[in-house]
Structure formats: structure tokens, C-alpha cells
Write a protein that binds this DNA or RNA. Structure first.
Length: 874
RNA sequence: GCGGACGUGGCGAAACUGGUAGACGCAAGGGACUUAAAAUCCCUCACCUCAGGGUAUACGGGUUCGACCCCCGUCGUCCGCACCA
């Protein structure tokens, strides 16, 4: 019987409507079944869905549909990370209001996502720019403020003097603003900060509990937090009029063991002592100013030469007051790490060594490798930074570096200077507090009011939300909230006097730091509904790009902890399982050379294979073009494929199936026309095989335990077991490969079978097909529905239970063991599964190949690995 | 510079915990069907070799009955951090 080709244009919208009509993806918080929360990182509403989204959301959807079939109550929501600069840029460039632009983009992207057939609970959808969402974010902010998790401090920012705005580091290109091109200045502004460093230790140690996270991400976070253990040592300044009131310099070090190798102290240009000296010394002032102004451009940082200036001050060595060392200001010392001052041991630190060589300061080796010779060990142009044995270090000589560390720590902790210990043990972190102030319009307003009399006053919760004004203009530089004629004027909630609103808005990373919790009860008029949060959190499987490995995930981990402290959540770790998927990449095409090079879209070129070489030409003119490297899809290189076009011509199922195929999901996948066609062939093939076997609906499925059907049932149930395992491990590419194998194996018997075929064989085939349909359902859900209805499946494939495999069909009664001779495969031995070792040995020795290899000798050894392999050593 | 990952046919990749290397897909070649094309179906497809077989998982060593997998070294690619004392 001939059937029509599978028509996705008809089938896909039809099944999407059927799912919608029955609201089958709407999740009920009260459903008592075991929960499963799967979430993909929500998108920024740029206006167009790209292939990266398709891959990301397809993976999440496969998990959601699979877990639903396995009987879980699945939460699979979607929303929009909707605040941010692009909306303001659009406003400046095209005069569209950011809100209008954003909500239009959301509408068109939502339509695109809907076409993909994702099993999302759209009833929980929200955008972070919805007042209902950011109102709750403001409530959280106030609670954090109340708990001391938020504070203000002066901080250096990149200031664009033309746009009158603060720039993020990545918006500073070669020391200039990315938009204005103006030289960026460092300015001190009072900014709002979250106390993420309060949680540094916990954020670090809890990484060990995240065993369902990629090791790579955990390591990146670990390095980012950057914990170090050391000693904070106070160095007494030799009395000197120039030092002003300062009597000591505090230094943080992780290498107190090298204290006898100290050569000088170095402080940052921003160090209070340096600032004090600047006031009276023009030379020092000039050096500090220069150092402060460098730093912005990346190139300058990379090539930065070590530079310094001697302050003329001296300090006393903590272990020998008669030993005086000079104090330098050095450009490589950072004010915001440790104490902004270091002691330099040139023999044990490359930076210190470079500096010492340049300015002729002493270099004394104090640590040598364990196998070194104390008499001849010297340090040339390379510092010895490893551990080893102490030398030239008086009472530390001969000790290991670790023991020396302890001895120095004990000694200095017990030594008093001005009535306090000379040194204390200290743990330091690289992690800094999270600055959230942004001088922009399109973000969540920080809900505080500045009053002349009362200072910083939180907006009372009853007065929330602090709404963004709608009538704003973008024709002037600077923050539109600052420029607004009335918005910032408000009465102080405490004294009633004229006051002004905070015009900073929050970093958009704040918005994405708790949206996953909000999804559990987005209707709630509090930030969270505790019962819903406790029920759903943590997210069981979170899926997104590796680019969020550090900031987004770290901020979210912090935020969840802060929400726990303020009673809004009951847990610390928001994401139990994390998966970082690879990108979708594509070949690039271009014509012309150098500055005349012009990038070409994939749809404008034709690729052919001539004499084994791939040759590209422009479809329109036939002109030969250049096939370039495979790169991340980007507008600038024009190597993009529009998901809408793909869905139009091949359907959502094909697109979904393709992005899951071939490459492991954490690696990049290469988008190619040929690959998509391969996926499309599979979709058509499955449809043809199933729709042409029109007797399937009349037969009750039943696995065969003997006869012709046995092989089919075995393949079906083994595939089922394997794919189940693959999906549990998110190994989608392997599942796809097994589906191909399964369909290949099924194709012959299925096409040959007719209504007259032996009943038990037909029952086995029906069982196999019924399994197949449910195996493809998570990946190609529309096709599955179409097939499910053809074979007479009950209800929708989307709600069908996952099949259970029959253990007896998954194990073999006979196993085929490869037989090796001296580690090389020479034959196969098929033997009963439960054959014991000696039976296997007997059978192996009887084999011709073995006899031939032995030539009458006895084997040295026979290794039998049960169910695996036999190796005969001759 | 520091830290990490990776390196398998023409290509994307499989290979369980150290046990048959290259499953599956793409591309390519051959054939069937067709007036023809598309679609579909069948066959071939790591390299060398006359057979038997030999050689192959970046390269060089090692451990092992047996290594893509473990260890040491070299080369290459990619990613993260980047003066963090």
C-alpha cells in the first residue's frame, strides 16, 4: 500500500494544537507524583531564535518528554531575560521605546519557539522586565539590605565621558568606549554591592557536592573564587616625617616561609600610604597617576613592564628589627587584593625577581629543590617558586617549606607589636563583592531613596514596585532616569522632606539569578511561595551554554543562599544537575581578499564535489567562491541558518533530530545541508515503514519468545534498554545512532510482513513498532503522534507511558567471545552464556585457529574474561 | 605564564570499569527500479598486500596476557584565568 510522504506542514501544527487543547504540558504544583524540574537557560529576546537556541531547547525538551513518559510530574517552563542594553541601543538608534522593542521581540521569538513543538508550560511564562517580576526582585533587594547582604561603597568604574555612562569591562575596547570611541576614564563612584564574598567559603566547598555538574565548570568556579591561605603581617615603619601618621604597613602573604628572602616592600599606587606620599612628593604623585591610568587597555596589561618608585621609607623586618627594608610603590601590586601591599622575595617570585633585577635590589635564595646543593644553588633570571628545603634562613634552615610556614606563623602570632600580634593567619579570596549598579534605564530600579537628612532610606515595601517611568528620552547622553524631569523627585518615606530616588538600576545578572525559583510560583504576590519552591527546587537538570560557567551560575548560587537567609527559599544549591551544551557551527563562505572580502550566506552558495574536492560557487552567477573555516554562527560572517527556514522546508522534527545527531551534546555540532537531509530521510523512512504496514493497528503487540519474531523482540528490547540509559546520561547522539540501527533492523521484516503473516511474528513487530514510536517521541514528537495514531495507540504519544523492557529479551543465552592469540583477535567462539571457565578453555583449544597457532605446543596461559573475551598466550 | 580539556577513516563520531578499534550517520563509488530524473532499495568503503596476513587511535617510550583507555615524555589544537602576593 502506498502512502503519502510525511507532510510536516500539515502534521506539526495539527499536533501542536492537540497538545494545546488538552493542556498536557501545563504543570500542576499539587500533582503528587515525584517531581522533575528541567530548565534551559532562558533567552535574551533579541528578536530571532538561532540554531543555538534550537539545540539547547531541543535537549531540554527531550529530557522533559522522556521524564514525563517515565511518570514524573515535570516542570518545564520558559521565560525571557528581557532587561539590558540592546533595547536601549534600539531606542537610541531607531527611536523605539525599549519596552515596545522588547515585547515585540518576545512575541516573534515565542512564535518561533512554538513552532518547534516544545513541551513547555507556557502558563508560567514571564519576562524579567514585567513589573510583576521586578517588583518581587525589589522586595528581595530590600530583604537583602535588611540582612546586611547589600551595601554601598566607593568603587572604581570605567567611565565613558562622552556617553556619560559606566561601561562594563567588556565594553572597553583598547581603552576606549565601544560605542563612543572616547578614552575611558577610571572614576570613583558610589555603587551598590552584594556581599557575595560572605559566602565565598561555602560557594567553594559546596562545589564538591555538585557531582552532577561538569568537572570543568566546577574547576572554573573554584579558580574564580580563588581561595588562598596565608599570613597577614604588620611591618613597622622606621620613624620618618614623610610617612605622616602611618606607623606600619600590613602585608598579606601566602609564603611566610620565604621571609628571610625579603628584599623590599611594595605597595599599590592606590594604597593609602602612596596617596599620602603623593600629596607632598610630585614625583610619586606623577608615578601613581600614571599607574592608575594605565590598566584599562588589555594590550597595556599584557605587555606591562614592572615599574616602581622608591618611597624613601624603610620598614623593620618582623623577624629581625635591626634589618631595614625599603618600601617601593609598584605598578604590579593590586589595591583590591589582600592589603594592597606585599613583601617581595625575588628568589621565590618571578614578578618580584623582574622588579628586583630592574632596580638592583637584593636577591637571596631561600628555598631550593630537595635534591639541590645549598652551596652552589643560585637564582638567575628565573625564580624558584616550588617547594623544597629552606636555606639562608637562619632558624628555618633545613626545614621544609611547609614546616617553615608553620614556624614563622607561630613565631609572629606570638610576637607583639604595639600590643597586638605581629601577624595573624588569614584566608583570602580572589572573588570580589558583586557590584550591581548600572547607570542605565532598562533595568530593575534599585528601590531606595536618598534623603539629605535621613541618608539612604529603603523604599517601604508597601510603596513597591518602583516602576520605570515610561516617558523617557534617549536623545541625551547619560542615564535617562537621571534626565527624567520628575521621576527622581520623591518625598522621604521617613521625614517627608524632598528627597530623590536612586537612579541606578540593577545589573541584568540579578534578574537571571532567581528566575528559576520564580517559575515555581510565578503568580505569587511575594517573591516566592515557599511550599512551591520547596517542592520544585532544586532544578534537576539545567541546560545551557558554557559561557555562563562562572558568572551566571555563581551569582545564582549566591542568590539562592541569600534567599535562604531571608526566608524566601529553603536550599542553597539551585541546580542539582548541570549540562553545558556545545555550539552550532557552520562553514564560512566568502569572495574577494583582504579588505575586499565579502562574506556570503550558506543559502547563496552551492557546494559540489569535483574530483574529490569540495568546490563552492555562487548560485546566482556561478562564480567560484572560497570555502572557509567552520565557525560559530554569527551575523558578521553570515554563516547563519535561520531556524524558521529549516522548519519551513524540513519541519521541526527534522531540525530537532539533526541537532541531536552526530556530535556529543557537549561538543559543537556542525550544521550542514547534507546532515539535515540525512535527518529528514530518517523522518520520512520511519513514516513510510509504519504507515505502509497498515495491518499494525489490527494487531495486539506482544514480544516473541521464540521463532522468527524473537530476534526482532530482542533488538527492540535491547534498544529500549540502551536508549533509556543514553537518555539518562544525555547521550543524545548515541540514542540517535541506536534508533538508526533499530529502524534498519526493523525495515526488512516490516516491509515483508502482511496481514497474512504468522500472528506471533506480527505481534512481535507491533510490539517493536510500538516501542520505536515511544523511543522517538521525545526527539521527534510530531512524527511520533502521527505514527502513534496510525498504529492505533491509545491517547497521545506525548502522554503515553515509557515502555518497559523484558529482562529475558535483553540477555543472551549464548555469547560470542572473541578469541585472541597473544592479544590479536583470531576467531570467535559461540558458547552457552553460563559456560564455566574450563568449558570455555576446552572449546577454545579445540578451535582450528588455536590449534594452528599452537602447532602442538601447550599454551602458556589462557585468560578467560567471563562474557567478554578469551586470550591464549602461546 | 598558570590551570584544564582534547587529538581515532575523506568528514561528524562509536568503543561499558583495561577486553573484537571504526557501530551509526554524512560524503564518495558501483548496481537495481525508471523513458528520464527525484525518491527508494541493494552492494563497496581505514591503509598495505598475491594469498595467508601485516600495519593502524598525534608522535616516542613504559606497565599489562591484552592499551584509544593507565603512566612518563614530545608535538599540536581548543578553552578558562591572567600581575591575586
Amino acid at each position: 500500500m502506498a502512502t503519502e510522504r510525511y507532510n510536516h506542514r500539515d502534521a506539526e501544527p495539527r499536533w501542536q494544537a492537540a497538545w494545546d487543547d488538552q493542556s498536557i504540558f501545563k504543570t500542576d504544583n499539587a500533582d503528587p507524583r515525584e517531581k522533575y524540574y528541567v530548565l534551559e537557560m532562558f533567552p535574551y529576546p533579541s528578536g530571532r531564535v538561532h540554531m543555538g537556541h534550537v539545540r539547547n531547547y531541543t535537549m531540554g525538551d527531550v529530557v522533559a518528554r522522556y521524564k514525563r513518559a517515565r511518570g514524573f510530574n515535570v516542570l518545564h517552563p520558559m521565560g525571557w531575560d528581557a532587561f539590558g542594553m540592546p533595547a536601549e541601543n534600539a531606542a537610541m538608534e531607531r527611536g523605539v521605546h525599549p519596552a515596545t522593542w522588547t515585547y515585540q521581540n518576545i512575541a516573534s521569538m515565542k512564535a518561533q519557539l512554538k513552532r518547534m513543538g516544545l513541551s513547555l508550560d507556557w502558563s508560567r511564562e514571564f519576562a524579567t522586565c514585567d513589573v510583576a517580576y521586578y517588583a518581587q526582585q525589589q522586595a528581595l533587594f530590600l530583604d537583602f539590605l535588611d540582612k546586611g547582604l547589600v551595601y554601598r561603597k566607593q568603587s572604581k568604574v570605567n567611565w565613558d565621558p562622552v556617553d556619560n555612562t559606566v561601561l562594563a569591562n567588556e565594553q572597553v575596547v583598547d581603552g576606549r568606549g565601544w560605542r563612543s570611541g572616547a578614552l575611558v576614564e577610571q572614576r570613583e563612584l558610589t555603587q551598590w554591592f552584594f556581599r557575595i564574598t560572605d559566602f565565598a567559603d561555602d560557594l567553594l566547598s559546596s562545589l564538591d557536592t555538585l557531582d552532577q555538574w561538569p568537572e570543568k565548570v566546577r574547576l572554573m568556579q573554584k579558580n574564580w573564587i580563588g581561595r588562598s591561605e596565608g599570613l597577614s603581617i604588620r611591618w613597622q615603619i622606621v620613624p620618618n616625617a614623610r610617612a605622616g601618621d602611618a606607623t606600619e604597613v600590613e602585608v598579606y602573604t601566602t609564603r611566610p616561609d620565604t621571609l628571610f628572602g625579603a628584599s623590599f616592600l611594595a605597595i599599590a599606587a592606590d594604597h593609602p600610604l602612596a596617596r599620602a606620599l603623593s600629596e607632598t612628593n610630585a614625583e610619586i604623585d606623577a608615578f601613581c597617576a600614571e599607574t592608575r591610568h594605565a590598566g584599562t587597555s588589555l594590550a597595556a596589561q599584557e605587555t606591562a613592564e614592572k615599574k616602581g618608585i622608591d618611597t624613601g621609607l624603610k620598614v623593620r623586618h618582623p623577624l629581625d628589627p635591626s634589618w631595614e627594608l625599603p618600601v617601593w610603590i609598584a605598578n604590579f601590586v593590586l589595591m583590591d587584593y589582600g592589603t594592597g601591599a606585599i613583601f617581595a622575595c625575588p628568589s621565590g617570585d618571578q614578578r618580584d625577581l623582574d622588579f628586583a633585577r630592574k632596580y638592583g635590589l637584593p636577591v637571596v635564595p631561600v628555598v631550593m629543590p630537595r635534591d639541590g646543593d645549598a652551596a652552589s644553588f643560585t637564582v638567575g633570571d628565573e625564580a624558584y617558586t616550588g617547594d623544597g628545603v629552606m636555606i639562608n634562613s637562619r632558624f628555618l634552615d633545613g626545614l621544609s617549606t611547609e614546616d617553615a610556614f608553620l614556624r614563622v606563623a607561630e613565631t609572629l602570632e606570638a610576637t607583639e607589636l604595639d600590643g597586638r600580634p605581629q601577624a595573624t593567619r588569614k584566608v583570602n579570596f580572589r572573588l570580589r563583592d558583586w557590584g550591581i549598579s548600572r547607570q542605565r534605564y532598562w533595568g530593575c530600579p534599585i528601590p531606595v531613596i536618598h534623603c539629605q537628612a535621613c541618608g539612604v532610606v529603603p523604599v517601604p515595601k508597601a510603596d513597591l514596585p518602583v516602576k520605570l517611568p515610561e516617558d523617557v528620552t534617549f536623545d541625551r547622553p547619560g542615564n535617562p532616569l537621571d534626565n527624567h524631569p520628575t521621576w527622581r523627585h520623591v518625598a522621604c518615606p521617613q521625614c517627608g522632606a524632598d528627597a530623590r530616588r536612586e537612579t541606578d538600576t540593577m545589573d541584568t545578572f540579578v534578574d537571571s539569578s532567581w528566575y528559576f525559583i520564580r517559575f515555581t510560583a510565578p503568580w505569587e504576590t511575594q517573591p516566592t511561595e515557599r511550599a512551591a519552591c520547596d517542592r520544585w527546587m532544586p532544578v534537576d537538570q539545567y541546560i545551557g551554554g558554557i559561557e555562563h560557567a562562572i558568572l551566571h551560575l555563581l551569582y545564582s548560587r549566591f542568590f539562592t543562599r541569600a534567599m535562604k537567609e531571608t526566608g524566601h527559599a529553603g536550599l542553597s544549591e539551585p541546580f542539582k544537575g548541570l549540562f553545558t551544551q556545545g555550539m552550532v557551527v557552520h562553514e564560512t563562505y566568502s569572495r574577494g581578499e583582504g579588505i575586499h572580502r565579502e562574506w556570503l550566506t550558506p543559502s547563496s552558495v552551492k557546494i559540489e564535489e569535483l574530483d574529490g574536492k569540495r568546490v563552492g560557487s555562487l548560485i546566482e552567477t556561478g562564480e567560484t567562491i572560497h570555502i572557509g573555516s567552520i565557525e560559530k554562527m554569527s551575523k558578521s560572517k553570515k554563516n547563519v541558518v535561520d531556524p524558521d527556514d529549516i522548519i519551513d522546508s524540513y519541519g521541526a522534527d527534522t531540525a530537532r533530530f539533526f541537532v541531536l545527531s552526530d556530535s556529543p551534546p557537549d561538543r559543537d555540532v556542525i550544521w550542514s545541508e547534507a546532515g539535515v537531509e540525512g535527518a529528514h530521510r530518517f523522518v520520512q523512512r520511519v513514516w513510510r515503514l509504519i504507515s505502509e504496514a497498515d495491518w499494525l493497528a489490527q494487531v495486539e503487540g506482544r514480544p516473541a519468545v521464540e521463532g522468527e519474531g524473537l530476534a526482532i523482540s530482542q533488538i527492540a528490547h535491547k534498544t529500549l534498554k540502551a536508549i533509556q540509559n543514553d537518555l539518562d546520561n544525555l547521550a543524545f547522539n548515541k540514542a540517535v545512532a541506536r534508533l538508526y540501527e533499530f529502524v534498519n533492523a526493523l525495515a526488512g521484516p516490516l516491509t515483508q510482513a502482511t496481514a497474512g503473516t504468522d500472528e506471533s511474528l506480527r505481534a512481535a513487530l507491533k510490539d517493536a513498532v510500538s516501542i520505536l514510536v515511544r523511543l522517538i517521541a521525545p526527539m521527534t514528537p510530531h512524527l511520533a503522534e502521527e505514527c502513534w495514531s496510525v498504529i492505533g495507540g491509545e491517547g497521545l504519544a506525548a502522554t503515553a507511558a515509557w515502555p518497559a523492557f523484558d529482562d529475558r529479551l535483553v540477555v543472551e543465552n549464548e555469547v560470542t567471545l572473541p578469541v585472541q592469540i597473544n592479544g590479536k583477535k583470531r576467531g570467535d567462539l559461540t558458547i552457552a552464556r553460563d559456560a564455566d571457565q574450563s568449558a570455555v578453555e576446552q572449546a577454545v583449544l579445540a578451535m582450528e585457529v588455536v590449534q594452528a597457532a599452537l602447532e602442538g605446543r601447550t599454551p602458556k596461559k589462557i585468560i578467560v574474561v567471563p562474557q567478554r573475551i578469551v586470550n591464549v598466550v602461546v
